[in-house]
């Protein structure tokens, strides 16, 4: 028994280090590569190195590295929460895991219907990735969600899903749906179809990016203001930006925590709504019945 519990404890430590180490690695990489700069500095993600590829060189950026760190950390969290769930003794972490699964399954069932109940893991993955990526800004790292390429990739996956489920109702119906009221409107329908992933990507990335831009502007402005007001103080005291204490933290609560989590929720919600509304359930069931006859 003692040996077994020691083994359990060791694996636990392994999982916890899997959750924490990626962030430490990301912070260390950032410290090693970034020179600290003064004043306003709003740039995109830094490019760490470039891989030579046949068609186009593949740049490995900060946002890619950070998002893979998030993937590893979320994987570690899942393993940690479900570790020893079959031992017959339920602890707090198992209840947390059950709570998460139950909440997401209820959400998926309520918004998409019984047919799509297999979507719960995908929705949980989207929620967790998006939320943890946005919260990464709290550690001073570059949030991957403020890069349009990362969010655009997720939106493309959602677009493929939507198109797949529209196709499932019948390819003929899918093509017909473009000329819905009158065939003259087909170009507009195609544009609105393509606009779905673009608007999803821009909504998420624009919200996170605007928050970080406003935070940087306010912080720099307060620095300038305090150096103007406290100029008369002698020596080092005059260089300390006193006014920077407080207000940027409140802004960070709104922009980094509330806005980031809200955008994660909205991205998952829109995924569910678009996929469920794109699937013509009645036509699909009619075809199924025909096939059975």
């Amino acid at each position: 028994m003692n040996k077994k519990s020691r083994w359990f404890f060791t694996v636990d430590i392994l999982y916890i280090s899997m959750m924490v180490l990626p962030f430490l690695v990301a912070i260390i990489i950032k410290i090693l590569t970034n020179a600290p700069s003064a004043g306003i500095d709003i740039t995109g993600a830094d490019i760490y190195f470039t891989l030579p590829m046949p068609i186009q060189n593949l740049p490995i950026t900060e946002s890619q590295v950070n998002s893979f760190c998030v993937v590893v950390a979320v994987f570690g969290l899942c393993l940690f929460l479900t570790h020893g769930i079959n031992n017959g003794k339920l602890t707090t972490r198992h209840h947390v895991a059950e709570w998460i699964v139950e909440k997401v399954e209820n959400m998926v069932d309520g918004n998409m219907g019984k047919y799509f109940s297999g979507f719960a893991p995908f929705i949980t993955a989207v929620l967790a990735l998006s939320a943890v990526s946005s919260l990464l800004a709290l550690l001073g790292l570059y949030a991957p969600t403020s890069d349009v390429n990362i969010v655009g990739g997720w939106a493309l996956i959602v677009f493929v899903l939507i198109t797949y489920y529209k196709f499932k109702g019948g390819p003929v119906q899918y093509v017909k749906s473009f000329g819905d009221p009158v065939p003259l409107l087909a170009p507009l329908n195609i544009i609105s179809e393509v606009a779905t992933p673009i608007s999803m990507a821009f909504r998420h990335y624009g919200n996170v990016l605007s928050g970080s831009v406003i935070s940087v502007l306010v912080a720099t402005g307060l620095q300038g203001l305090s150096s103007m007001i406290f100029k008369f103080l002698p020596g080092v005291l005059g260089e300390i930006p006193f006014l920077q204490i407080g207000l940027p933290a409140i802004l960070s609560i709104y922009f980094d925590i509330f806005s980031g989590l809200l955008q994660a929720y909205i991205f998952a919600m829109l995924t569910m709504l678009y996929v469920a509304s794109g699937f013509p359930a009645e036509i699909y069931e009619k075809r199924k019945l025909k096939k059975q006859k």
Binding site: F202, R203, Y205, G206, I266, M269, L270
Partner: peptide, 20 residues
């Protein structure tokens, strides 16, 4: 309401992206 607000925000965010 939060959901609808976030969707209504989209047009403003397009403008913000263009401005940035």
């Amino acid at each position: 309401m939060l959901m609808g607000c976030a969707i209504a925000e989209t047009t403003g965010l397009y403008a913000l992206v263009i401005a940035i």
